[in-house]
Design a protein around this nucleic acid. Structure first.
Length: 546
RNA sequence: GCACCCGUAGCUCAGUGGAUAGAGCACUGGUUUCCGGAGCCAGGUGUCGCAGGUUCGAUUCCUGCCGGGUGCGCCA
C-alpha cells in the first residue's frame, strides 16, 4: 500500500506483481490478495518448523546485537536519602530495571545508576532538626574535627518520622527554613560534624533502600548520587565561563538554552544561584561530566517522572552547547506518568499520606499467602518455600499490573488491581510457567525427555503458539527502541494465552503419536524459555511451583 | 498566557497510516473420572471527546475547539 503511493500506481496492480513474484517461493504455502491490495502470506509448516528450531537453539533467541557492547547508562530509581520509599517510587524503579535488562539483551553493556537524592535541602532540614533536638551530640560541636562515633545515632524509623516533621516545620516557618538552608550550605562545605552525621543518615537510608529494591528484584550497578557529582562542579563551571557558554545573569551563573526557532520559552539552566549555591541542574550536568569521564556511554537514559521533562531538555541542551556530551552520546528522558488516585490527582491514601512501598508489598504477600491456604496448595511445602512463593506471586502481581501500562501515560492506582491474581496479571503468567515446569518434570519421570528435533509436527494449536513464540525478537527490539516495557508485558501475556489454549486443546504426555508428542513437549520447553526470558526482562522471577 | 501529556466498551487499559478497533475486570452460560480450574470455551457492548483538513484509507498525522492533568529562572 505504501509502495502504491510512491509508485503512483493502483495498489491492487502492485500487489499482483508482488504476488506473481512470491507465488513460487517455497517459504509460502499460500500467497493471496485481499481487499484493496493487502497481501496475505501463509508460511509453510516446514518453514515455520525450521524457524522455531532455530529460535529455540539460538542462545540470544535471535535478538540482533544492536548494542555491540557499547555502554548504556540507565538512571532510575532516584530515591532521596532520609525519606521513606513510597508507592511513587515503584514506577521509577521497575520501569528503569526493565529498560536496563532489555538494553542488555540487545547487546549493550549496561549500568543502572540509582542517582540518589542525597545532597539537597532536605538533608539540611534533617540535620538541623537533629541539632535542635539533640544539641549535645558531638556532631554539633563546631570545634570538633574528627573522631565521631562509628555507630549511627539513629535508625531508619527515626529518619522516617523525623523527616516529615522537619519538612513541615521548615515549610511553615521562614526562620526555620533559613536554618535548614544554612545547614545545607554548611553540609555542602563538608563541615566535619554535619558531614559525619550526614554519612550516618546516608548509610542507614541506603541499607533500608537495599531491602526495598531487593524485594522488588531491582538492582543497581552504581550507587551514586548528587553528592558524588559535587567535586566536578567547580572545574566544570570555570571551564564553561571561560568558553563563554556560562554567563552571569541577574546575579546568577547560567547557560542560556533558548534557540532561535523555539516556539516556547526555555528558561536558562542555572548553575550557581545568586547566593552561590548549586541547583539540581548543576548536579545533573556535572553527573554527565562524570559519566563521560568514567564510561563514555553511547546512551544515557533517564527514567524519571514526566513532570521533569523541561528540566531534562534544559540539561541536555546545556550538555550539547557546552560539548560535555558529544552528539554521539544519546541523551533521553524516558519519562513516566504519575500514579493518580481515583480523583485524577496524584495518589494519596485515605488518610492523605503516601503509601509506603513496603506496606504495598506486605499487602500483596498477605493476599498471596491467603490464596495458598484457601486453595490447599503447598501444605507439604516448607515454610521457606511457601514464603518464597507468596513473595514471588505478590511481586509479579504488583510489577505486571504497573508495567502493562504504557510508560508515558498517567494511570490510576488501584490496590485491588495491583494485588489481583486472575486475568491479565503477573500471577497468571507465573501459573503458566509453573504448569509447564510441572509437566516437564512428569515427562522426565516417565522417561520421555524432550529431545532435540529436526522437524516439528505443527497442527492448528501448535502453529498458533509457534507463531506467537516467533515474535520474541521483534518484540524485544521494539521495547528496546522505544523504551517501552509494556509491549513486553503484553507479549508475555499473549504467549501465556496461546500456551493455555494449546494446553487446553492438546494432550501431551498421553499422546500416542510419538512425533506429535515430541513436538508438543518441544513447544512446552520453548514456551517456558520464552516466557521466563520475557518475565526476566520485566524483572519478574518465577517460582518452581505455586 | 505559553508549552507538554491525556480523552478508546460500565470500570482499568492496549492499539508506532491499513482489513470487521482489541484485552482484562464486571455480568451470563458451559467446562474437571484425563498432563495444575490462579485455567479453558462461548455470549455483547463503542458518536475512538467535538469539528474540520491531508490521504485510496485516520483511533493514529495536521489545525481549531471542549474537558482533565502537568510544567513554565534562583525547590528537587
Amino acid at each position: 500500500m505504501p509502495a502504491a503511493k510512491i509508485a503512483k500506481k493502483n495498489p491492487r496492480a502492485i500487489a499482483e506483481a508482488i504476488v506473481a513474484e512470491l507465488q513460487d517461493d517455497p517459504l509460502f504455502a499460500e500467497v493471496s490478495i485481499a481487499g484493496p491490495g493487502f497481501i496475505n502470506l501463509k508460511v509453510t509448516s516446514q518453514m515455520l518448523s525450521a524457524h522455531l528450531i532455530e529460535l529455540a537453539e539460538s542462545e540470544n533467541k535471535l535478538v540482533a546485537n544492536t548494542g555491540q557492547g557499547q555502554m548504556a547508562i540507565v538512571d532510575y530509581g532516584g530515591p532521596n536519602t532520609a525519606k521513606p520509599m513510597h508507592v511513587g517510587h515503584l514506577r521509577a524503579s521497575i520501569i528503569g530495571e526493565s529498560i536496563k535488562r532489555t538494553l542488555k539483551l540487545i547487546g549493550y553493556d549496561t549500568k543502572g545508576d540509582i542517582h540518589l537524592g542525597d545532597w539537597g535541602t532536605h538533608m539540611g532540614m534533617v540535620i538541623s532538626e537533629f541539632e535542635i533536638r539533640h544539641p549535645e551530640w558531638p556532631y554539633f560541636d563546631k570545634s570538633k574535627k574528627d573522631g565521631f562515633p562509628e555507630e549511627p545515632p539513629i535508625t531508619i524509623q527515626d529518619l522516617e518520622t523525623l523527616y516529615p516533621q522537619a519538612s513541615q516545620a521548615s515549610k511553615s516557618d521562614e526562620d526555620r527554613m533559613a536554618i535548614s538552608r544554612a545547614a545545607t550550605a554548611e553540609l555542602q562545605k563538608k563541615q566535619p560534624g554535619y558531614y559525619a552525621l550526614w554519612q550516618h543518615c546516608f548509610n542507614v537510608s541506603v541499607a533500608a533502600m537495599k531491602n526495598n529494591f531487593a524485594a522488588l528484584d531491582v538492582y543497581f550497578e552504581l550507587w551514586l548520587g548528587e553528592s558524588n557529582a559535587q567535586d566536578y562542579i567547580p572545574d566544570m563551571v570555570t571551564r564553561l565561563q571561560e568558553k563563554g557558554d556560562a554567563i552571569e545573569d541577574q546575579g546568577a551563573i547560567v547557560i542560556h538554552v533558548q534557540r532561535e526557532d523555539d516556539k516556547k520559552e526555555y528558561p536558562p539552566l542555572i548553575l550557581y544561584k545568586r547566593d552561590g549555591s548549586v541547583m539540581y541542574g548543576t548536579t545533573d550536568l556535572a553527573t554527565i561530566v562524570q559519566r563521560m569521564d568514567d564510561f563514555s556511554p553511547a546512551k544515557i537514559i533517564y527514567v524519571v517522572d514526566q513532570r521533569q521533562h523541561l528540566h531534562f531538555e534544559q540539561v541536555f541542551r546545556a550538555a550539547r552547547i557546552s560539548g560535555i556530551a558529544p552528539e554521539t552520546t544519546e541523551l533521553t528522558h524516558a519519562g513516566f506518568g504519575t500514579m493518580n488516585g481515583e480523583d485524577g490527582k496524584p495518589f494519596k491514601t485515605r488518610a492523605g499520606g503516601v503509601m509506603k512501598l513496603e506496606d504495598l508489598i506486605k499487602m500483596g504477600i498477605e493476599k498471596a499467602t491467603q490464596r495458598l491456604d484457601e486453595a490447599n496448595i503447598g501444605q507439604d511445602y516448607s515454610a521457606e518455600e511457601r514464603a518464597d512463593i507468596a513473595h514471588k506471586v505478590a511481586i509479579a502481581a504488583i510489577k505486571f499490573a504497573d508495567l502493562q501500562n504504557s510508560r508515558t501515560a498517567d494511570y490510576v492506582f488501584d490496590l485491588d488491581r495491583l494485588t489481583s491474581f486472575e486475568g491479565k496479571t503477573g500471577p497468571y503468567l507465573l501459573y503458566q510457567t509453573v504448569r509447564i515446569k510441572s509437566l516437564l518434570k512428569k515427562a522426565a519421570a516417565q522417561n520421555v525427555e524432550s529431545k532435540k528435533l529436526s522437524a516439528l509436527h505443527l497442527a492448528e494449536f501448535e502453529t498458533q503458539l509457534g507463531l506467537t513464540l516467533a515474535e520474541f525478537p521483534n518484540v524485544v527490539e521494539l521495547a528496546a527502541k522505544n523504551y517501552t516495557p509494556h509491549v513486553l508485558a503484553d507479549y508475555t501475556y499473549r504467549v501465556s494465552q496461546a500456551f493455555s489454549s494449546f494446553y487446553g486443546n492438546c494432550h501431551i504426555l498421553n499422546e500416542d503419536d510419538e512425533d506429535i508428542k515430541q513436538t508438543r513437549l518441544y513447544l512446552c520447553a520453548m514456551t517456558l524459555d520464552v516466557l521466563e526470558r520475557g518475565l526476566d526482562l520485566l524483572g519478574i522471577p518465577t517460582p518452581e511451583r505455586m
